[in-house]
């Protein structure tokens, strides 16, 4: 009874999704668009439902690329963040580089990186990692700096080395910030992976979308968009659950 109720309440939180579907349908019907311009949601859902096997491999590929890219970007950001925390000289090199990396539009970067790494998985991975790097980097730097004065004093009077203080105080203090960064970056990782797939890839939802569009399979193209949206939302929800669990552990 209560379980059913909580499920219902949970579903109610997703009313914007239902609204989007209804507005989408209205928009198509009211404007009298043909299927080639914009299919109705029901046709799209039908295509996804009837061809799950067509979607799953590309979905899995994009998911793996997103997660691996997020992992790589996070790892690089942690290393850079620790460097910046540790030394002003490293900070002077890394921080402007990170800002430049952030300022260059990713679409401009993709051809260059594809030239360097080849038109293959590693480019997709690299693009995703680069997109994920900046937010995690910024949150890591601020998280490392957020250790309380009393905590720093404690480690000082205990005679702790810099490495010990980093490991036992600053890194653990930074965990909540890093988890926030991962939560807000996770959907972006999906977006980045898809963009790279769309432009250069041979697999993944981005590639599926670009192929479907070239063959004017609008149900399939829109179906890919729906699946990608679902994947994006799911990574966000997953990252949020992870964040809650981890933050409860360290605070």
């Amino acid at each position: 009874m209560t379980a059913a109720r909580s499920v219902l309440t949970g579903l109610l939180h997703y009313w914007p999704l239902a609204l989007i579907v209804v507005l989408w349908d209205l928009w198509v019907v009211v404007n009298g668009y043909t299927e080639t311009v914009a299919p109705r949601p029901w046709a799209v859902f039908a295509d996804v439902g009837a061809n799950v096997g067509e979607y799953v491999p590309d979905l899995a590929y994009t998911l793996v690329m997103s997660l691996a890219g997020l992992g790589l970007g996070t790892l690089a950001a942690l290393i850079a963040g620790i460097g910046v925390w540790r030394s002003a000289a490293i900070s002077g090199v890394v921080t402007p580089a990170a800002l430049v990396l952030r300022s260059v539009p990713v679409t401009a970067m993709i051809p260059v990186i594809a030239r360097l790494l080849g038109y293959n998985d590693s480019t997709v991975l690299a693009i995703t990692a680069i997109i994920c790097f900046f937010p995690v980097f910024v949150f890591t730097v601020s998280g490392l700096a957020s250790a309380s004065q009393s905590g720093r004093d404690l480690f000082a009077v205990l005679g702790a080395s810099t490495a010990t203080t980093l490991r036992r105080l600053h890194l653990l203090t930074a965990v909540p910030s890093i988890m926030v960064a991962i939560r807000i970056t996770a959907p972006t990782a999906v977006l980045a992976a898809m963009l790279a797939e769309f432009l250069i890839g041979a697999h993944g939802l981005g590639h599926l979308f670009s192929t479907a569009r070239s063959y004017m399979e609008m149900d399939r193209a829109w179906g890919t968009a729906v699946v990608a949206t679902a994947l994006s939302v799911l990574t966000f929800v997953g990252a949020r659950a992870l964040e809650r669990a981890v933050v409860a552990r360290v605070t």
Binding site: S148, S150, G151, D153, R168, L172, R249, V250, T251
Partner: peptide, 8 residues
Amino acid sequence: QEHALLPW
């Protein structure tokens, strides 16, 4: 003054 215990 502050206990400075590690919360984790």
